[in-house]
Every structure is written in structure tokens, then in C-alpha cells.
Nucleic acid binder design. Sequence first.
DNA 1: TTCCAGGTGCATA
DNA 2: TATGCACATGGA
Length: 279
Amino acid sequence: MNYVIGKDYIEIFGKEDFDIKEILECGQVFSYKFMGDCYLAYSADKKAKVTETSLGYIIKTNHPNYFENYFDLKTDYGKIKETLSKFPILKKPIDFGKGIRILKQNLFETLISFIVSANNNIKRIQMILERLREKLGSKVGDFYAFPTREQLKGASVEFFKEIGAGYRADYLYKVVRQIDDNTLNEWQKLDTKDLRNKLISLSGIGPKVADCVLLFGYGRQDVFPVDTWIEKMYVKFYCSNSQIVPNREKIRENLVKEFGNLSGYAQQYLFYSMRSREV
DNA sequence: TTCCAGGTGCATA
DNA sequence: TATGCACATGGA
């Protein structure tokens, strides 16, 4: 996929490895808006407007270098899809979500977002996160930035309940007090296993949320988040009728063993097609 | 009305 | 180590 970067834009040529609807709506990210003729993508304190063109896409933003990384434009998804298509169960999911790219999201925002995501549905997750932005975030031009750790630290448990976080309010209140502004960045140097254990030690973060933060925040691909949809997928494709369904930890182990360093990509194709009832 | 959603924390054996 | 249950909330 070719693209050029200007002072306030990125132009993408070709659509086979980049579909903005699939990228934003495949469940990896919650802070975006569909505007009818374009998508607005929000990440931390930055915004991009993505519009389809006859040749591909035009991304308008004041931070083109940031969004070049955010949309993972340097990675060759054609090659990844070619490799993964050799797995029979991935053929349809890859065809269904062939324009997906795994975003490289802001660490802190990813952490908070996926704590909110636990046992929740995507529409409500988006609503809660939007309220967080509007009530605690700094105004940047015509939108609100995702609140910083300091800004979240100023909020009470009651506040988190008021915006609809439910029982996750306690998790949010605690987690912003368990880390400081450098913690998440310092953990970059750890290997996936140690980093995962650090994340799980935080409030509101278990195995699944940790894997999502590893994949969407830290860009680790050797993880396979197992949620209710992946569990359904596993039952459908890996368990015969009479077979007992293994627990999620065992499912995760088996899938990481199978897909190795491409686990993260495989997971997202499968998740998207399962949730869309397209497998 | 009941079930479900990108699960986690905690008690119990 | 493994299993079971409670936990808010809103849409289907």
C-alpha cells in the first residue's frame, strides 16, 4: 500500500489493505464517530478526519506523523494476510475484514478504555468514554482530549458511577492511583509475559483486558485476547459436539501456540467476523 | 422478563 | 489451583 505524507494530511492509494469502516468498527477502538461522508478518529489529544476518495483515502490531521504510526501504515498487511490465509478457519474472516489494520493506540487511553469494556457492550463503552472525554478532558479546538491520569485522579467513585461505569467505577478510581505517568512507558522494555503480569496486577485488569492492552496499546502480536466471542468461535471450530469446552486460559494458550507471533492479527479477523455473524 | 455484552475480584474448597 | 458467584447498566 502506498501513501504520501504532507504537512496536514496523509493520502493513501489503494483500498485493499485499508478500510476505515473496518479499522474503526472492528472492536479494537471506541473513540471515533461516523459522520456520514467521513470518519473522525480520536486518539488521546489528537484528531483525524478520514474520507474515502476514488483512489483510496485522505486523512486530514494536524499530526500526520502520529497517525502514520496510529494506523500502522508501515506494516505490510498483504503479507500478513497471505501468511494467515493458510489457516483454513481464517480464510473467510480475512476476506470479510480484509481492510482491517491493528491500530497503535495511546497506552493510557487503551488501558482505561478496556477496563470500561469488561462485561459491557460496545455501544455503552463508547457512551461512557465519550462522557469521560467531555466531562474531564481538555478542550482541543472543536473536541475534547481523552483525560490525562491527573484529570482522572480528580474524579470520585461517584462520578464514575454517574457517567454509567457501573461497578467498574471502583476499578477506575483505583487504577489511576496505582500507576504514575511513566509507569506504562517504562513497562515497554519488559517481555510480553512479564508485562502481562504487571498489567494483571492492576485494578480492573484481568487476563483478557491485559491482552487487549498488550495488543492495541503495546503492539504485541504474540497475544490472543479471549472474550465471549472468541470463546464462541473456539467452541464452533475447535470443539466437537461431545467435547468439553476448555477454560479461557487454556483456549488462549492453544490459540497463541497455533498462531504464534501473528496471534493478534488472527484474533482480530476472527473477532470481527464472529461478532458480525459472518462465519 | 430474561439474557447478554471484548470480565474481574474474591471467597471457598 | 480451580470453581462459583456478585457486580451496574441498557439493549435485544
